[in-house]
Design a protein around this nucleic acid. Structure first.
Lengths: 219, 219
DNA sequence: TCGACGTGTTTAGGATATTCAACATTCAGC
DNA sequence: GCTGAATGTTGAATATCCTAAACACGTCGA
């Protein structure tokens, strides 16, 4: 099977360096065409990652224990680094080879959310403000919850797949999980499997504010 | 930096094949010792995967478009395959390089946490209070973070697998993610892929408090 | 017992990756 | 306009990878 990457490298070399003829991969069988998933653009990935970290080629080379020339050639896709040396190079960053190959650096997901941008659901006594509008492809759902005095998620206990956790920021909340009830105040926290029936009640006299998260997103 | 893998390869070659002398990686500096994460045992992984699929080396070689010798050498860790050829080999299976490298080598939980029970790590300018002592089997890690004025996670950007999100509860924080920088204040929020290099800095004059969550737990 | 296959391993040599050193460029500081 | 120090690129030499072909061993059936 013909390797697309290697081929392109050769083309590149031929064009730039020498006229030395190139032996076609396997004289015999024709390649079954590009059925396999494309190999990510190692060079550009590395360059972007390096830039993000604010390192020069030499700086990274020193950290990684390779030469700056190697970094340069890899970034230009002039060579296909061995696993060993790619590992060395990535040792210059806190990232694994697997993550490096998977990470989508180009996709610009929304990162920052002004308070007013949080999506608010449930008005009245209980309000949830969600971080992020579409939870597509996200593993987490972060929330800013506010319970007015007397607010109550009700006697019909909640129950859904996933896990949830939170920290009380202000006021107090009475939380029941799987039959056990506790009152939490500012700084206290909870963590439970969302399949356990649960209920929140503000038994205090001021608004209760909780910052919580659940996975997977359930809104 | 000396590459452990390559070294062992050489040793192996020397012992079995020839007595040809081996030039030590870099005459100069001594290796800073095994600080970096171990490179997964490519050879054994490949062998196991191949066995699971019931292929012989030659059979896989044919599918992959490499020679059986290459498979053999890789499985013995005699060579560190190039990304390109590892890709080719894995094209013989329905698995990506990243998955291949990651592939796994095979009650009543505590719900309520008083503020004092939160496990505190990092005492100085930055302190994290974690919900839950052992994150074993948990999908989420909830945290109460406090940054003193001037606190900074440092120019060596953080980067790790997972996703993280948070809401600023008090003060302000300057957050850099994947090259983009923003200053968030109380009520603002963020969400990003933790593999993107990121950095937190309290550029304000009072303590900044953030309640955040990440998945999977990374402490 | 023998050959014809199957397996994984090894070897020599050509192809590719990596290093080292030099080069070209940019940019700050004078 | 000069340096000097930084950057990324390149060519030649060397080390490593990859292939092709042979090797050694085991199994099976005649």
């Amino acid at each position: 099977m013909l390797n697309i990457l290697n081929t392109s490298i050769i083309v590149c070399r031929m064009a730039k360096d020498t006229n030395r003829p190139y032996r076609r991969a396997h004289g015999g069988e024709a390649p079954p065409a590009g059925l396999e998933a494309a190999l990510p653009d190692i060079g550009q990935r590395l360059r972007e990652l390096r830039m993000m970290h604010g390192h020069s080629q030499r700086e990274l080379a020193k950290r990684a224990g390779v030469t700056n020339g190697t970094i340069s050639l890899i970034e230009q896709n002039r060579i296909s680094p061995s696993i060993g040396s790619l590992k060395k190079v990535l040792d210059g960053f806190p990232i694994s080879i697997a993550d490096f190959l998977t990470l989508d650096l180009r996709h610009k997901a929304k990162v920052f959310y002004a308070a007013k941008e949080l999506r608010e659901i449930g008005s009245g006594a209980i309000s949830f403000k969600l971080v992020g509008r579409d939870t597509q492809g996200r593993a987490l759902q972060m929330m800013h919850e506010r319970y007015q005095p007397g607010a109550d998620t009700g006697p019909d206990m909640l129950s859904h797949t996933g896990e949830e956790s939170g920290i009380v920021v202000a006021g107090l909340i009475e939380l029941t999980v799987g039959g056990e009830t506790r009152t939490l105040t500012s700084g206290d926290a909870y963590y439970f499997d969302s399949r356990l029936p649960h209920r929140y009640r503000n038994t205090g006299t001021i608004d209760c504010v909780i910052v919580s998260a659940c996975t997977p997103p359930s809104f």
